[in-house]
Design a protein around this nucleic acid. Structure first.
Lengths: 139, 139
DNA sequence: CTCCCTGCAAATCCTTTGCATACCC
DNA sequence: GGGTATGCAAAGGATTTGCAGGGAG
């Protein structure tokens, strides 16, 4: 699968310099950033970019289904451009850093029919929590 | 295991009328409420109760380890008094309703060592998403 | 050339905090 | 009676929105 900018253009989504910078910032990340972290990094390349544009743009990418919104640590939302492969998340309870991880098997198989409470269940994701090396060393 | 009020008293936690109402509201719930929903229900029995007290009290119960704080839908936090049995959550993407579910197996077994990125992993929880009966019918 | 994106600032939502008073143990 | 929980109101952080001007297609 192609990179995020390409995927967005293929959907004939209007591409602006701001949107490109945001998409590239997201796509290059090995961890998942908050809106504020994205603003900070985007502003390094384009100082006039506004916070509102970052939020608007992220929300549109999420609405298009090209980016996933994560609510894992109760502070701020994080954004995950990796929609192509099924994966799960590993979170540091100290600093909130979020990484992708891959597991064996399919969690959907683990939920018996009589535990579905009449829901039409469509997705399942696993959140692993612990301390990263740095936070473990600091505590 | 006993009910939440009893557990809290056993830890010699100062019990006030407000705290009792909040604990009972939480404990009687078959779904998990937001702080605001708890305030609303508590206020039905005790009109003078304040929003600050609800938040303070919930945070203390969480700090004591008697209640779990959930950040699952990106809106507001929800509170889960069911700390005794390992369980996971099923969320309606329409209305945000949150229910407990039980699965077979242990999710920790699903994360290979080489996917742990140096983390000391302590917990794993699965979030199932879909639409509840009401929301499915409405869409 | 038109429509929609952008930036600014103000507004909104959720949650926390400071302080004086009330009350549990 | 001492210390701490409560209520009120104001502060705080994250996110959204209204509006006028500017730029992409």
């Amino acid at each position: 699968m192609s990179d995020l900018v390409t995927r967005l253009r293929q959907r004939s989504w209007r591409m602006t310099p701001q949107r490109r910078v945001i998409a590239e910032t997201l796509d290059g990340a090995h961890v998942h950033y908050t809106a504020d972290e994205i603003l900070e990094r985007a502003a390094g390349r384009m100082p006039e970019i506004s916070r509102a544009t970052v939020y608007n743009t992220l929300n549109e990418m999420v609405a298009l289904g090209e980016v996933l919104e994560l609510n894992l640590d109760g502070r701020s939302k994080r954004y995950d451009p990796n929609v192509e492969h099924e994966h799960h998340h590993l979170i540091c309870e100290g600093c909130g850093a979020t990484k992708d991880v891959h597991t064996v098997g399919n969690p959907m198989d683990w939920l018996p029919g009589d535990e579905r409470h009449g829901f039409a269940v469509t997705r399942a994701s696993i959140t692993f929590r612990g301390l990263c090396r740095e936070c473990a060393a600091a505590s």
